[in-house]
Design a protein around this nucleic acid. Sequence first.
DNA 1: GAGTTTGAAACT
DNA 2: CAGTTTCAAACTC
Length: 783
Amino acid sequence: MDVVSPELNSLLPDEIMDTEAIIMDDDPPSESPAASGQSQPSDDSPVPMETDVPAVPEIVSLCSDAPPTQLTQAGTTSTPTGSTLCSTTSATQLLLTSSTASSSSFTLRPKLSAPFTLSANHQIILNKVASSPGADTTRSPCTTTTTTTPGGQQFMVTAIGKSGQPIVLQLPHTGSKSASVQGLGEAKTNPQHFKVVTIGGRTDLKPVMVGKAVSSASQVSTLQAQQLKTVQIAKKTQVSSAGPIKFVFTKAVNNKGLTAQTSVSNVITGRVLSTSSPVTPPRTITLSETLGSSSSSKIAISPLKSPSKLTVVSVASQVPNSPQKSVSLPLNMAHLGHQILLQQSTATSPAKVVSIHSTTMKPVQTVTVGGVGAPQFKTIFPLSTPSNVQQIQVPGSRFHYVRLVTATTGSSTGQAGSPITNSSMTAKPMVVNTTQVRMSVPIVPAQTMKQVVPKPLTSSGQVLTTQTQQRLIMPATSLPQIQPNLTNLPPGTVLAPAPGSGNMGYAVLPAQYVTQLQQSAYVTLASSSGFSTPTGIQTQARLPLNGLSTSGAAFRPRKPCNCTKSQCLKLYCDCFANGEFCQSCNCTNCFNNLEHETDRAKAIKACLDRNPEAFKPKIGKGKEGESDRRHSKGCNCKRSGCLKNYCECYEAKIMCSSTCKCVGCKNFEESPERKTLMHLADAAEVRVQQQTAAKTKLSSQISDLLTRTTPAITSGGGRMPYTFVTKEVAEVTCECLLEQAEQAELNQQPQATAERMILEEFGRCLMRIISSAGKTDCPSINC
DNA sequence: GAGTTTGAAACT
DNA sequence: CAGTTTCAAACTC
């Protein structure tokens, strides 16, 4: 299916990943050294050791407007099982509360000073956060504070979310080694190594463990203070108690056009963290899978054309022995707005890992979020702004892509199911979010081209519209059995936490639904851009409903389905077949929604089991030399002659091909029936157009006539003819006609002669009326 | 709008 | 893989 016109694709060559580089690895890797905390480059993305990596200040942003949130920074390596990355004990705590604490061993940087103090017990207390200038305080209060630990560590704390709610940042003891990884890296103690923690986001946050780990090979000592990278994590609300949620972010920054670009990727307990540290602020982040955990499917997206391109999308399936799950997504640092939705399965469930890495080497940074009672679902969302999803088709490629374009800055309210945003920042966070974010991920194109009209990318500050058909495929972690090939998922699927799905895992969301969630439910991350943008308000596209986009005529509304028995979980349902949620449909007992994501995921799985191509477009390119568009499977019509919409070929306005098994087909080039039908259709169309034009013209003429005549009547400059036929004139005329009739009767004229005499008299009367009209306002008529 | 026809999807 | 059934859209009246 042509998702996006080739012209569009031609405009975005550098944004598209090499499709051929995509690697699907369904074979779960055996327990690798990575699981034991050793650095392990991802399979599909050779990541150099970070020994050469200049240290880069790192920013970890946790967005939460939730109640007390505890962030534990442990410089730690993960346990061999990878289940624990953070140490809550003996950790320095940054307690961000609205209260004022006393002593502080931290020094606050004047520039970023905020209501932020440190208590004696290593707790940083952040007073009610101040909202970013111009931003909606109720939505994205943000506070940024930079502090320096006794050990020389500098932290930049940015609080986003509800003000006044205590947030605890538990840091590893400054003197501690923060695990073996720390010992190897020792970069943490670098006085010029910034760590920016942004706290904000949603309510209901459970204690969050934030651990920063540097792999053994990392040479953090070379970190440069002026370079900051930020990872923001927005936590979902309404999360029930669950096991610790752990994220491992491998951040890679490719700064295209920048010098001194290096990268390092580290694997910690099956998690790989790679961070590049270009001299200039990072521009690209590549998320990649890293784990040494078992089964994982990977999609490698090779950044052949541009360092800023996404590189790898990896999906790890859950394996009993390797609880960890990894989702790696290539990210373009320069363009924020990618979305990653993660869910933590259970308290005992393996940690989910999102690793971001780039091909370049970077300091390793591990962010672990979780802990007892942590939200069951984790989502990573575009940090600064909602993303605009655009579907991209690469000519000649069998893959389709999703381009996620973030809007500019903005704040939004967080709600249940709100995604956690993962993003990166440059040393000046505000700068980062102002940039346009784009991410390309191979996706399954929608079945038809309708509804797919890419919007021009907008730069920051512009209003973004949301595509309806594109969907980002994400893994369903808690459902190992439901791990269809990513390329076969319903077009534009996004995995998101499914409310009420328990440990179900990710919900397969239509892309447009993500937009909906972004608008209504998801937390708007107080992006760093909010700092730079005075307004800090982002305008988002309206939610497209069931393929219907409010963005304009570009999207044709999908017909609402009327399913009654299929629960909209069969391919009978067009909505389901197109990977969309039913919205504004007439279906009954519909399960094609987020509330039944478990069933929906199973249904998708079942469909894919039956037919791996089930969600692929039926109308695609034919063989070479054949028509560009043809039915991939062909129709099987028997009675319709393939000249009715029953026929999928005819419905798609294509002719039947050799793949069809139809009987009595009349849908071929030379078919007279088809030609007749076409002519009739054309004629009908022409008629409709003519009628429309005629109506328009008539309306215009009437309107024009009224416009021209009204002044003449009202002004007195001229009188309409009927105005002269007054009652008196009519009476006189009638008298004249009666007189003629009487005369004819007196003269005994035949009836015909009498009628002629009357008509002649009537004519004379009219002539006199007309004649009188031009002379006087009150014509006189005499017989 | 109800009923029929049709062919894809689902099932056996 | 083939035959049958189910289903929802297309179509007719």
